[in-house]
């Protein structure tokens, strides 16, 4: 049952990265859209994510609940030493969630919209940035429970070139996911081209930022190269991601929209796989070289048993409903939405 729980944790993080990521990406795309086209882009984005956007963010809650019920020592260590980035991420989540809803449901459309939009765009950028920072900090080895001064305990635990570059890399991935997703949501050929261009820019940004991540890791003494390329799974996954990326662009130029989405999701899966595989079961690396392991730092057997059952039961209820939701609104997206 322990492995069931771990698989759910991994899947929840992956789904949050893909679904939530595309959702954040929507704001990032809006950020990079010229004033002239913003209104139309916004409408397309809204129709694409409106019905499922609340559900997209549930994955984060699932992940966090698994962590605090099943692996409390890991949850509390991260909560203490990554307090500041977690708080900033939360402020981003609050700002984004409310701004997205407010701008749509405000009964009067006036200059308040500008404020909602500005908040939405900025928080769409900041939230994944800090999500990336938090994830990178967990494995960066900068968390130091022995530290006595404020800065080294609570600030340098996350403020490093490596963590920040992973943060920006995450932002680029989100933008890429959203751009690929959105191409299929518009009928307008000009818009399709615009989104394709956005996707390409995000793709290039992700590659460049990915390289910067490796450089930063090198200078901070984090053996990232070894983690990623030091084992067969990592090498194969990276190769698969690269090949699928070529295929993705080929298909997009052929006018395909569905398959590229799947491929973009596949690439993110491969990235998460390579970065977590070598680490498993350790998900937090401390300054002194010690690890917090999913296998060792876990709750009691009975808890894990109950948690696993709750997750299995939950999926039976959630997954069919979620698929039907996505299916229904994909099918009917073209027909527009009545409110």
């Amino acid at each position: 049952m322990l492995y069931v729980v771990i698989v759910y944790l991994w899947a929840a993080i992956l789904l949050y990265l893909v679904m939530g990521g595309a959702d954040f990406g929507a704001g990032i795309i809006e950020f990079f859209t010229s004033e002239r086209n913003r209104k139309r882009t916004r409408k397309t984005l809204y129709q694409a994510i409106g019905p499922i956007w609340e559900a997209n963010h549930m994955w984060l809650i699932i992940a966090i609940v698994i962590l605090f019920v099943g692996f409390p020592a890991i949850y509390s260590t991260m909560s203490v030493y990554l307090h500041i980035p977690l708080t900033i991420m939360l402020l981003g989540i609050i700002a984004r969630g409310t701004a997205f809803t407010f701008r749509h449901y405000d009964a009067v459309v006036d200059e308040m919209q500008t404020i909602y939009n500005r908040i939405f765009i900025w928080s769409s950028f900041i939230t994944p940035l800090f999500l990336g920072i938090i994830a990178a900090s967990a494995v960066s080895g900068h968390i130091n429970p022995q530290a006595t001064d404020f800065l080294s305990a609570y600030v340098f635990s996350w403020l490093s070139w490596f963590s920040v570059s992973v943060g920006f890399f995450t932002v680029a991935i989100c933008g890429f996911l959203a751009a690929i997703y959105i191409i299929g949501e518009t009928e307008n050929e000009l818009d399709k081209l615009r989104f394709r261009r956005k996707a390409l820019i995000m793709n290039i940004a992700a590659v460049v930022l990915g390289a910067i991540v490796f450089v930063a890791a090198y200078f901070e003494g984090i053996p990232l190269l070894n983690w990623v390329f030091g084992n067969a799974v990592g090498v194969i996954a990276i190769a698969a991601a690269t090949i699928s990326l070529v295929l993705l662009w080929y298909l997009i130029d052929k006018g395909q929209t569905r398959l590229p989405r799947v491929l973009a999701g596949f690439q993110v899966t491969m990235i998460l796989l390579t970065t977590t595989y070598r680490h498993f079961p350790n998900i937090v690396v401390l300054e002194n070289g010690q690890y917090l392991s999913l296998l060792e730092h876990r709750g009691h057997d009975k808890t894990i048993e109950a948690l696993g059952l709750a997750l299995l039961l939950g999926s039976i209820l959630i997954l069919p409903a979620l698929f039907y939701l996505i299916y229904s609104f994909q099918k009917k997206a073209a027909s527009g939405i009545e409110h």
Binding site: E54, F68, V69, P72, S79, T303, L313, L317, L325
Partner: peptide, 29 residues
Amino acid sequence: FMKHAGPIFGMPFSLEGTAFFIEAIALGF
């Protein structure tokens, strides 16, 4: 508190995750 209490009183939270998720899906519909 969470370090010790999480595994003990976490059960309702893990079920609540499901309930809340279903609520979000149903709200979408």
